[in-house]
Design a protein around this nucleic acid. Structure first.
Lengths: 281, 281
DNA sequence: AAAATAGTGTCTTTCAGACAGTATTAA
DNA sequence: TTAATACTGTCTGAAAGACACTATTTT
C-alpha cells in the first residue's frame, strides 16, 4: 500500500510489455424465459482449465481483421453481441448480429478482475447482461463446445427467489456463479424501475405475459388485477395496439388486449417488489 | 461480424502477446461536497496526450512488487483506493489507504473500452465511483501533476441539475467528461434508494446536513419538514446518538439532534426525486 | 425584537394492496 | 356447465406533499 510512483515508473507503465500481460475478456449473461422459468445461456468448456464445466459464453477482446484485412478494434458491446451471436445463431452470419441488436436488450453488468480468478494469467472480464425473448436452442455447430439454455434454478446459487426445481446442481467455471448471481440481482432490481420486462417478451404481448415475466424473475406471485391496473397507469410503459389475441387462454378466459413497448425509459413511480420491504441490512 | 473462430485461433488467443496489446487502467471519479457544491477530484496531465488538460486520477493496472519483492497482482478496487490515496493524501503512506477504506464509499461504476478513446493504444478503463465527506485539499507533491477538487458545474456537462455557477468550462481529457456524467447520474440515482447520502457527511451529522447533500446532488430544494419526517421514517437509515450540536445554526435556530449512519443498505420505500416524475422517455 | 432553523401536527391527494364482481372463452 | 382468465370497481391503509405552527437559537 505504501508507494509513490516515480516518474520513470509512471512513464514505463505506458509500455504494457514491460509488465506481465493482462488479458481482457467479454462475458455475456444472457437471460431468457422458457416454460415459465428463467434460463441462462451457458457453454460447456472443451479445454482446460475447468474442462467439462459450464461457463458463460465469452472470449478475449482482440484486434481482428476487417473486410479489407485491416486491423479493426472491436468495441466491448460489439464483442458481447458477437459472442451471443456465435452461441445462439442457427447459422452464423451477418444477419444474426443484426437480429440480436434489434431484439435483445444488452447492457454492461460489471467488470471482474480479482487476481487468481483465472489460473492461467491475469484476466479482466467485462460482463454484459442480455435480456432476450424466447430464442431458439443453440446449434452446437461452429464451436466444438456445447451450448444450451440452462435453468438458473439448477445452478445452486444461494439466492432467494429462484425455485430449486432441478435436483442437480451445476458448478460453473471460474467465478461465473458470482457473475450470474450479480446478473440476477441486477435483473430483479431493474424490473422495478425500468420497463425492461418487455425485453423478455415478443411483441405484441398481453399484460398477463408481462406479469408472468415479473413473477418468474422475482419468484413470487403477483395480484393479477392490481398488476394490470398498475401497468396501465405508468405512462409510457406499454402502448395499446388496439388488437386482441385470436383466442382465449389455453384453459379459458376472454381474449386479451395486445400491447407493444412504450417509450418510457424509467417507470415513475416504480413497481417495488413485495416481500422485501424490510431487512436489506 | 461474420466469423467462426477456429480451434487454432481460439487457442492462440490464450497468448495475448500474439495480438496487439491491451492496457487496463483504473480511473476514479471521487465526489465530495464543498461549500454547498459538488466537486470532483481531478489531476492536470503533465504528459501528452492531453498535456495540460484535466483528467480523472487513474493509472495502469500492473503487477507490482510486494513486501518481499515478490510479484503481487493488485485487485481492481485496491488499485482505485491507491489512486485515490496518491492524489488526496497529505503525506502518502500506509495510513492514508486505511483512512480511505474507512471513510470513503467506493463502488465500481462502469468500464469504458471504445476503440480510439486513447490515441496511444487500446485502453480499457475500469471506472470507480467514490463518495467522500469533505477531504483536505490534495498536496501537489508526490506526482509532478497538480490535483484539485473542481466543481462539477465548471465542467460544462450538458446535464441537468448542475448549476452553471462558474463561467469557465474545463475540457476534460479522453472521454472523462462522459465518465463523470455517468458518475453523476449514478450518484443522483443511488441517493434515491440507498443510504449513500450519509457517505458525503462526517459522523455525527444532522438531518439538515443530510438534506443539504440531497439538495446539492439533485440540484433542487427539498421541503425541510417533510424531508425530516421521511428520513426518520425509513428504518435503518440513520440512528440517533442522543446528542445535539453545541450551538444553533450560524444564522439562528435551535440546536439540532445528531445522528450516525444506520444499518440499512437499501431504503424502503425509496426517496424518489421530485420534478422528474414524467419525461424520462 | 427579528429572523432563521429544528422539529411536529394536520390535511389532502395519491397509490398500493385486498377483495369482489362481471364478462368472455375453453374444456 | 364449470373453470379459468381479463379486466374493472371499491374500499382501506400507508405514505408523500403542502402547509401551518411551536420552540429554540443567533443576530
Amino acid at each position: 500500500m505504501d508507494e509513490a510512483v516515480s516518474e520513470e515508473e509512471f512513464l514505463a507503465s505506458y509500455d504494457p510489455r514491460a509488465f506481465d500481460p493482462i488479458a481482457v475478456t467479454v462475458d455475456v449473461v444472457a437471460l431468457t424465459i422458457r416454460d415459465g422459468e428463467l434460463h441462462v445461456l451457458l457453454v460447456q468448456r472443451g479445454v482446460p482449465p475447468f474442462r467439462g464445466y459450464w461457463a458463460l459464453p465469452g472470449g478475449f477482446v482482440k484486434t481482428r481483421k476487417g473486410p479489407q484485412g485491416e486491423r479493426v478494434e472491436e468495441d466491448l458491446a460489439a464483442a458481447a453481441i458477437r459472442e451471443l451471436a456465435e452461441e445462439t445463431g442457427q447459422q452464423p452470419g451477418p444477419n444474426i448480429a443484426r437480429v440480436i441488436k434489434k431484439r435483445v436488450h444488452l447492457e454492461q453488468l460489471a467488470t471482474y478482475g480479482t487476481p487468481g480468478r483465472d489460473p492461467r494469467m491475469r484476466v479482466i472480464s467485462v460482463a454484459y447482461l442480455a435480456f432476450a425473448p424466447e430464442l431458439p436452442d443453440p446449434q452446437a455447430g461452429s464451436d466444438a463446445q456445447a451450448a444450451a439454455w440452462v435453468p438458473v434454478s439448477s445452478l445452486g446459487l444461494a439466492d432467494n427467489a429462484v425455485g430449486q426445481r432441478s435436483g442437480t446442481t451445476r458448478k460453473l467455471a471460474f467465478d461465473h456463479a458470482r457473475i450470474v448471481a450479480d446478473a440476477l440481482e441486477r435483473a430483479r432490481s431493474k424490473l422495478e424501475y425500468t420497463p425492461l420486462a418487455t425485453a423478455f417478451v415478443a411483441e405484441p404481448f398481453t399484460i398477463s405475459e408481462l406479469r408472468a415475466v415479473y413473477e418468474t424473475v422475482w419468484g413470487e406471485p403477483l395480484h393479477a388485477g392490481n398488476f394490470h391496473r398498475k401497468i396501465l397507469s405508468v405512462p409510457g410503459f406499454v402502448e395499446s395496439t388496439g388488437e386482441t389475441t385470436e383466442t382465449g387462454g389455453p384453459r379459458g378466459g376472454p381474449r386479451a388486449r395486445l400491447y407493444r413497448r412504450g417509450d418510457a425509459r424509467l417507470l415513475h413511480p416504480p413497481l417495488l417488489r413485495p416481500g422485501q420491504e424490510e431487512g436489506i441490512r
